[in-house]
Design a protein around this nucleic acid. Structure first.
Lengths: 263, 263
DNA sequence: CGTTCGATTGAGGAAGATCAATTAATGTGG
DNA sequence: CCACATTAATTGATCTTCCTCAATCGAACG
């Protein structure tokens, strides 16, 4: 028998709990430190236990399509993949961006078919794992089950962060936050966080963030003017970020000053 | 050895695939039919295999808080729960809404602590399951593991739908879509879809949808004027939906006419 | 019966979308 | 290799949507 301290307790006690919230933030930072090794370890674990089928993809290749019958989960060993949903009227909406170590296709488990398209944005290597085989292997290797659950959990956390960004941030900050998340994702994988190669057009970024391509362009120009980012010469898709913390500060400032939405 | 037909195929072939997309829509409808029994069955399965600790909650009770150490997953047997994230500056942002049969706390698995608050919005019964005990039980009962994975998968799908709604729909349609989703969730649980008791203020709805309370109020008034919904007398929190399909149509129309965002 | 909280509705203003023109980069055929 | 076509990005000028501010109304509560 175990205790359930939170359940059936008295109604919200905001004053007492505010202080403890700050720890959640620092814990979050810790997680991304831990993951730096975890990503590689999980990939190794997969190789050892499942010998996944490896496939090479190029920009524009579809890894799976919405409506395809579900059978496999995919793990990105390298490259960049966007997750795209088709609106009923045929328009596209990007709903996710995947990096090395990320899993793809979780949305197919419950519906027995994928809910989105997964499109490669760059040359990369994708590993395919049959879901039924994975479950069998999880029985033998508990660490594999842990890795699977953590991957799903991380998707859920990340999606919520994205939703919050879209709901609360003004255009400038939304773009800044997008760049910051991207850089942080690179950092969590042991890569440099001061340089991003955007493998997408302004229109695609805007689509992801719920903005027009002009708004994205203006936001990027403003961020460049303020020195938060700079473009490496010849081509505006290579972004240099001199100070990641400063970029995070830009996002925070927008939160405090702008958009109140509740109350 | 198995085939990977999608991988390393030629770049996107939009024209050929458009037709097959429609089937994804009808499949989606099928899923919600199936779930009508699935929700109850899964709950029974949990009772049989784990004897979860049951707790009663009232409106305002916290089931867990952001930052609390992760230990349990929670399953909602009845009632209504909102998932709330705290912004770094102390403001709240609602990022999810949970109904009977929904699981809570998945975001805690990867971070070892919950990332959000879960707050009851109504009297209800919440079952708590220790995550470690659940994993052990999953070893004995494969159906339990399936149920767990489907629950996580559904959260991922649903979150993406929410993101898409926020990114693509204008205020009116966003509110209409919110009501439609709610009614559909009720339908998937065998309840009537023509009546919703909103257990939240306009401010809370607006917070969830990225709108102000005034915009929500205006949208509801407009929907009522156009006959898409009506308020049952005395109190504007009981919404009657005469025709759910018509409401879906309202959302679709907004998609086609309005906001292009990409291209 | 007055107070409080939530909802509605209107008027003005600001953020961002739309439209349009220009510039920059990439690709193509001669 | 260069003129030309094509696509992406930038920037400016309007216009629309939705936010903000404010007043009013209704319902619930003590």
């Amino acid at each position: 028998m175990f205790a359930l301290p939170q359940i059936a307790s008295s109604p919200a006690v905001p004053s007492a709990s505010r202080a403890s919230r700050a720890s959640a933030e620092s814990a979050e930072r810790l997680v991304s430190q831990v993951r730096r090794e975890a990503v590689a370890e999980t990939l190794q674990l997969l190789v050892r236990t499942l010998a996944p089928r490896k496939g090479l993809v190029h920009a524009g290749d579809m890894i799976y399509r919405a409506g395809d019958p579900f059978g496999c989960l995919y793990i990105l060993n390298s490259g960049l993949v966007k997750i795209v949903k088709l609106t009923p009227d045929g328009r596209e909406q990007m709903v996710g961006l995947k990096f090395r170590g990320d899993w793809l296709g979780f949305d197919g488990i419950a519906r027995a078919g994928y809910g989105c398209d997964a499109v490669a944005m760059d040359t990369g290597e994708v590993w395919a794992v049959r879901y039924d085989a994975l479950l069998v292997a999880c029985g033998r290797h508990p660490a594999l089950l842990t890795a699977l659950h953590e991957a799903m959990s991380r998707v859920i956390s990340r999606d919520r962060d994205t939703l919050m960004s879209v709901c609360t941030l003004p255009a400038d900050a939304r773009v800044a936050n997008f760049l910051h998340d991207w850089a942080q994702s690179l950092g969590a994988r042991g890569l440099r966080t001061d340089h991003i190669t955007l493998r997408m057009t302004r229109a695609e970024i805007g689509n992801y963030l719920g903005l027009t391509l002009e708004s994205v362009s203006r936001a990027l120009s403003k961020l460049a003017r303020e020195g938060m980012i700079s473009f490496v010469e010849k081509g505006r898709r290579e972004v240099h970020i001199p100070d990641l913390e400063a970029l995070a500060g830009f996002v925070q400032r927008a939160l405090c000053v702008e958009r109140v939405v509740l109350q």
